[in-house]
């Protein structure tokens, strides 16, 4: 019986060495930014229709020097928010027209993991927008996280 005990003892003494060799030094393998996704539509009679807009440029309000999208032909955009503010605006420039969309939101920052560090999630409170080329905007999901989900529908005229 004593021999069994000692064998068990020795086995478990080596267990951490065995276990640690399985453990790899993990890198962060996920996207660590929460992006607001807006899809484009027009109204075809009573039905909504997904639409490509061309050419469209999008940039942050006050950040004309850095375009998120430049003369693209796209049907949706991913918009970055930030904990630096409670309200951020984006300019949508389509051909010669411009509209500005402002989002007001709450930020919650959390520790995703030690490897990935801190991530901010957002909860959209309200949306304001000009209507030169935008007909209406509908918020379908308030919570913006690192998951790829649809948050906003933009209906163009």
């Amino acid at each position: 019986m004593k021999e069994i005990i000692y064998k068990l003892l020795i086995f478990f003494l080596f267990l951490p060495i065995i276990l640690s060799s399985c453990q790899t030094n993990k890198e962060c393998d996920i996207s660590t930014e929460s992006l607001l996704k807006a899809n484009f539509y027009i109204m075809d009679g009573e039905e909504e229709q997904a639409v490509f807009v061309d050419p469209i440029s999008v940039y942050g309000l006050g950040r004309e020097d850095s375009l998120l999208y430049e003369n693209d032909s796209i049907s949706s955009v991913f918009l970055p928010l930030s904990p630096v503010s409670e309200t951020l605006g984006f300019v949508f420039a389509i051909a010669t027209y411009k509209d500005t969309i402002s989002f007001t939101y709450e930020t919650k920052t959390y520790l995703e993991s030690i490897e990935c560090g801190f991530i901010s999630n957002y909860s959209i409170d309200s949306i304001k927008y000009t209507q030169n080329v935008i007909d209406t905007i509908i918020l379908i999901k308030k919570g913006v996280t690192i998951e790829d989900e649809d948050h906003v529908k933009i209906f163009f005229k």
């Binding site: 930014e33 950040r63 998120l68 970055p80 930030s82 630096v84 951020l88």
Partner: peptide
């Protein structure tokens, strides 16, 4: 204790 969280993105650096 959590300090010096730096979040950098399109809008610049946030330190909290």
């Amino acid at each position: 204790k959590v300090d010096n969280i730096t979040i950098s993105n399109y809008w610049g650096n946030y330190i909290g």
